[in-house]
Simulated assay, not measured.
Amino acid sequence: MRMKTLALVAGLALATAVSGCSTFGSYKVFSSDYGSRTDAGYRLPSIPIYKVPKQYHRQIVAYDGGEKPGTIIVDTTDKFLYFVLPEGQAVRYGIGVGREGFEWKGTARVAAKREWPVWTPPAEMIRRQPELAKYRGGMKPGITNALGARALYLYNKRGDTGYRLHGTPEWASIGKAMSSGCIRLMNQDIIDLYDRAEVGAKVIVR
């Protein structure tokens, strides 16, 4: 019986490793870190985190992906973002990703970081959603802003990708495919990631 159990555990570990991102259990889950707070003069509301599946709560996990610390890995299939730490660990965040037709994969870098950014919808988004034309000159920062409390701007060799890692007031979208390609995190999580990630950090979207 013991041999069968060990074989099952080994098989599960191998299957996870083959998927590209190896994670084995959690060291710490930050479920209590989603309360309200004041940030740069804005009152960030609390998130009813009990309504968010626990796998999407911020947590430190064992990680064996081979990337150097400081790298950001976006797993669009399982809806996780990993910030790689030293010694085989990573901070894992739940994310929302692009809906059907807006998915993307590739490698980029963090070219800039902004606190309480202005959101300017691209022209193609305004064509799809004419009601956004009123924000053509930019949506002012605030609790209802589409980029939330923080944004990390992604560039590649061709320049601005147009994609961001950003906060969202729509916490219920975490774990789902609803965006126009950007990667959404709960506001409390994007603040945490913003404080960890450096300009120039490599971002791999899978």
Rank of each mutant, 00 (worst) to 15 (best):
K68Q: 07
Y42N: 01
T38I: 05
R58P: 08
D75I: 04
G65M: 01
F24S: 09
T71K: 11
S26G: 06
I49E: 04
D39M: 00
G35M: 01
L44Y: 00
V52P: 07
P48D: 11
V74R: 01
V61L: 14
I60R: 08
V74S: 06
G35P: 00
D78R: 14
H57E: 10
P69A: 11
I73C: 13
A40V: 04
A62H: 11
L44V: 03
T38Q: 01
T76I: 11
A40N: 05
T23Q: 12
I60Q: 12
Y34C: 08
Y42F: 06
P45I: 01
P48F: 08
F24N: 12
I49A: 00
V29P: 13
F24Y: 14
R43H: 08
S26W: 08
K79R: 00
P69N: 12
P45V: 02
Y42P: 01
G65A: 00
P53H: 01
T38L: 03
Q59H: 11
V52G: 07
K51D: 04
I60D: 07
S31I: 06
I73V: 15
K68C: 02
Y50P: 01
Y42G: 00
G66P: 11
D33C: 10
G70T: 08
A40H: 03
I72R: 11
P53W: 02
A40W: 01
H57C: 04
V52M: 13
P45C: 03
S31K: 08
S32G: 11
D39S: 02
Y63E: 09
T76F: 14
Q59G: 07
G70P: 05
Q59M: 10
Q59Y: 08
R43I: 03
S26E: 06
K51G: 01
F80I: 05
T38P: 02
F80V: 05
Y56N: 08
P69S: 10
G35N: 04
R58S: 13
D75A: 04
D33L: 15
P53I: 00
R37C: 04
T38H: 00
H57F: 07
H57T: 06
S36G: 05
S31T: 07
D75G: 04
K51R: 02
P69Y: 15
P48K: 09
P48M: 08
G41S: 01
Q59A: 10
